[in-house]
Design a protein around this nucleic acid. Sequence first.
DNA 1: GTAATAGTGTCTCTCAGACAGTATGTC
DNA 2: GACATACTGTCTGAGAGACACTATTAC
Lengths: 219, 219
Amino acid sequence: MERRPITTVDVVLLTLHASHLAVALSVRTSEPFKGRLALPGGYVHVEHDHDALQAARRVLEEKTGVAAPYLEQLFTFAGASRDPRGWSVSIAYYALVPLSALKSAEAGAISFVAVDEIGQLPFDHSQIVAAAVQRVRDKSAYSSLPCYLLPGRFTLAELQATYEQVIGEKLDKSSFRRKLAALDFVEPVRGEVRSGAHRPAQLYRARRPKGLVVFDKTM
Amino acid sequence: MERRPITTVDVVLLTLHASHLAVALSVRTSEPFKGRLALPGGYVHVEHDHDALQAARRVLEEKTGVAAPYLEQLFTFAGASRDPRGWSVSIAYYALVPLSALKSAEAGAISFVAVDEIGQLPFDHSQIVAAAVQRVRDKSAYSSLPCYLLPGRFTLAELQATYEQVIGEKLDKSSFRRKLAALDFVEPVRGEVRSGAHRPAQLYRARRPKGLVVFDKTM
DNA sequence: GTAATAGTGTCTCTCAGACAGTATGTC
DNA sequence: GACATACTGTCTGAGAGACACTATTAC
């Protein structure tokens, strides 16, 4: 029989924290790198996990208490030198959640670090985070992905700010709304508005049956 | 110690064969599914492979004799029920090569099957092929990926035909060339032309330093 | 009234699609 | 000359960017 590599699942949980894209890190409870901040992750449990996606969901749930609405496989990092225990395979996933879904977890063992301020992480986790951020930035330019960073109801101004934050450039309000109307993946919620010090704004929600919508052009 | 899953690498080698996108399959020489056509693949060799990409290159080289110019990780298929031997991880890669690079291998144990005519393959290999084809079609619409399906020199008509074949729709010649000129990832080879029964066509090649070029818009 | 944010209208310029036209080879 | 393929020019309509305008609230 072949010698088999270690197989783990790691999750890059991203959210908008103080208007910046941030990643959730947890303190490692076992060696190697015990006590250090790292991506939530764990072994694949051959006896209990049916497949890799389910293992990722389990790990995310165990470590952060969150059932992420968006969870997608990112990349598999595998090699001899990424883990001191030897040849290892990490099937990496990334998840997007609104910050509001994490308020309870924040009290726990989870820390949020802005993606631009991450130092060195154990293993190749810095690389994994960089790959996830890259993917989210790229994909957000031509899909409805940023919706998953917002709570159930949001104004168009908030949606636009989220896009701008994630893809890193200013967008024209008029063009943005024209495209939204054409793409039709958000809908107004009749009767609900956000009141502030000024003119109230119509609240919108993501259209349910659509899921992730991918465009031809960019935002 | 955790029970560890089996870890393998599988490669979807794609090429243009008789104007159709085709996948290279090889006959399995060991159980399970011995004697059946399946994707070239093999165990990760913990002692010799430094990482997963290198394992994929080795497998491709061993089974097809080809050093593919384009080789990229596709997706990792992992679960309890995809392999009769038990919980397994397949890190799937896809490669693109010009048919001319495969002429020697064709005599060997490799068969080409048009991607639209693939029946049931062992394991979840049908799914893996489908994912690779999907990826190539999508990515070809907004990148120079199809160049890797052509030999070193090609005419613009051949390049256009390749794009049309892969993405599955007719393109306007004038628009196509305008975009090519703007994107600037191919260059004419001075003095080289393809002569036929009629007006000879200028030969082009992919610009060396560029590698894969990704566009904002689609072809 | 003013300030501030929400939301709409419109002008212009770019560019992709469509298609016709010219160029250059074989026979 | 005819014919086939290579290559280029031009017209037009759709749409994106830019920016100004109107709307509705609090004070």
